[in-house]
Design a protein around this nucleic acid. Structure first.
Length: 502
DNA sequence: TCTGGGGTCCTTAGCCGG
DNA sequence: TCTGCCGGCTAAGGACCC
């Protein structure tokens, strides 16, 4: 355990919702809920205004709508959030080589490793400057926790929320944790919390009191020992910059349960293909294929099969997944299917066979390329599945193409400029024309197939510092829609394709 | 209108070989 | 040869995190 509070935890405040509010002036100060909008969607992030109604993440969307019927409900735009996240991570990277991202909106930084801070005063100064830089670069706020360990730094950033900084002096950890709930400790979730509660343990002080032996008896060796140490404020986990990926998986929850065995089989194959695409794009292959099935009653089972060697061949993965499905009873209906690959490697069995056969000369192929066969054995990349990334165009009744517009999606109109989809239905789509840092824009309604309306890329939240940059108008003219980002190439629908929540 | 998606880690159990 | 033990691997499930 170090003696100075040089571990920094950054947590962006209500990140997805705050990013949407920053991008859409009409949503500032309003309750905003981001998440899956389908019948089985859940809340990913609620703005602080929405939280006042009791809405929180992981809550079923239907419940959120009952609590906050007047909130704005938007689908997540992950590529937009990712671009903001990259800006933030760059700021963190300037502080230290040891940055451990936990998600798009959260990270640990080891300030000592970067020489950025040595004591409480310098750490606090770094934290405050970081918060100011984040605000300047992204227009969003983040909360910073500083402490001598990861766990306490995280507790600190939680206390700093929203838009604050809290530093915990080393030596005060045990007193700080004492009265807090056992749920404060990482790894203690609902199940363990309930287990402990039944044993009469609800606070960290009571964990310490119970003693290591009792905790091991209650929770098993690994968890018991670590929980006791954590409750004492001892946390030696280092900040780890690079983590190897261990598995790749995709899954879909269907709007209504699937009963037809053939349809289930087709969905499994579709998921297997999607999974392999992800596997390849990450430069991996894998040995163990996992099928996941969630049944009508929410019971979940997994079946797995380990191959002789790693593969990234869609046919191999698809067939393995189909074999696993054979052994699963799906009567009653299926609400979720998933396909995953674990036991990752950066080579494939096929590579070896090819090498043995002398097929590969010179440069070894990357796993993404199928050099062994020269062909993509899988089906051509599909635009998107029905409940996966939202396709821009769906086949309508009678075969006519019907454009799909998701709430929150960025669009551009030939006449009215950039805006976002406020809602759509019965052949109409409502668009609000406004830009980040501009004034609240006007709303107009179009036919869904209006030829002037196209999906577009998100606009940057903050004008780039370079005044010569043509991307953004000068700040004081930002309410004018006259200046727009450079033309994108075509309408690839990536604005809508962000969403992986059905 | 109940309950997403993408991960990690741990535990338990059975099997196999030394 | 039989038995016990141990480690490693595989499979399945569960808990947890964001």
């Amino acid at each position: 355990m170090r003696s100075a509070p040089t571990i920094l935890h950054l947590d962006m405040d209500a990140f997805f919702a705050a990013a949407e509010q920053a991008a859409k002036p009409s949503l500032r100060g309003k309750p905003v809920v981001v998440g899956g909008l389908g019948p089985r969607g859940v809340v990913a992030t609620a703005s602080y205004e929405a939280r006042r109604f009791g809405v929180h993440s992981a809550m079923p969307m239907a419940q959120a709508r009952r609590l906050a019927p007047n909130a704005a409900y938007l689908v997540p735009r992950f590529s937009f959030y990712r671009s903001i996240s990259e800006q933030v991570m760059r700021l963190l990277g300037a502080l230290s080589p040891l940055v451990e991202p936990l998600s798009l909106d959260e990270a640990f930084v080891d300030l000592e490793a970067g020489g950025a801070a040595r004591d409480a005063a310098s750490a606090r100064a770094v934290g405050e400057r970081l918060r100011a830089d984040i605000a300047a670069v992204t227009g969003l706020t983040g909360s910073v926790g500083l402490a001598a360990s990861k766990m306490i730094a995280k507790v600190a950033s939680e206390r700093a929320k929203p838009d604050g900084l809290v530093l915990i002096e080393p030596g005060t950890e045990r007193a700080l944790l004492g009265p807090l709930s056992v749920r404060t400790i990482p790894g203690v979730g609902p199940a363990t919390g309930e287990h402990l509660r039944r044993a009469g343990i609800t606070t960290c002080a009571e964990l310490v009191e119970a003693g290591e032996d009792e905790l091991v008896r209650l929770l098993g060796r690994a968890q018991g020992v670590s929980l006791h140490r954590m409750a004492l404020g001892h946390d030696d986990r280092p900040v780890v910059a690079e983590r190897d990926m261990k598995s790749v998986s995709v899954e879909d929850t269907f709007d209504t349960d699937l009963h037809d065995r053939l349809r289930i089989r087709l969905e499994v194959e579709r998921l297997a293909d999607r999974c392999v695409r992800r596997l390849r794009s990450s430069g991996h292959s894998g040995r163990t294929i996992v099928l996941k099935v969630r049944r009508y009653d929410f019971s979940t089972l997994t079946r797995s099969e380990t191959l002789r060697g790693p593969t990234d061949d869609p046919v191999v993965v698809r067939e393995a997944a189909a074999r696993l499905l054979e052994g699963v009873d799906t009567t009653g209906g299926v609400r979720l299917l998933g396909v995953g690959v674990s036991g990752l490697a950066d080579w494939t069995q096929e590579d070896l066979f090819a090498q043995a056969a002398g097929l590969i000369a010179g440069v070894a192929p990357g796993p993404g390329q199928d050099a062994a066969t020269g062909t993509d054995t899988g089906r051509p990349a599909e635009p998107a599945g029905p409940s996966g990334a939202a396709p821009d165009v769906l086949s309508g009744p009678g075969g006519a193409a019907v454009r799909q517009w998701s709430p929150g999606q960025d669009v551009r109109h030939a006449e009215h400029g950039p805006g976002w989809v406020q809602g759509s239905g019965v052949g109409r789509v409502t668009v609000r024309f406004e830009v980040p840092r501009g004034e609240i824009g006007r709303v107009r309604t179009f036919r869904v197939d209006d030829p002037g309306l196209t999906p577009s890329e998100p606009l940057p939240l903050v004008a780039p510092p370079d005044p010569a940059d043509p991307m953004m108008p000068p700040e004081d003219q930002s309410s004018s829609p006259a200046t727009e980002p450079k033309e994108r190439s075509g309408t690839d629908g990536s604005g809508a394709a962000d969403s992986s929540i059905p």
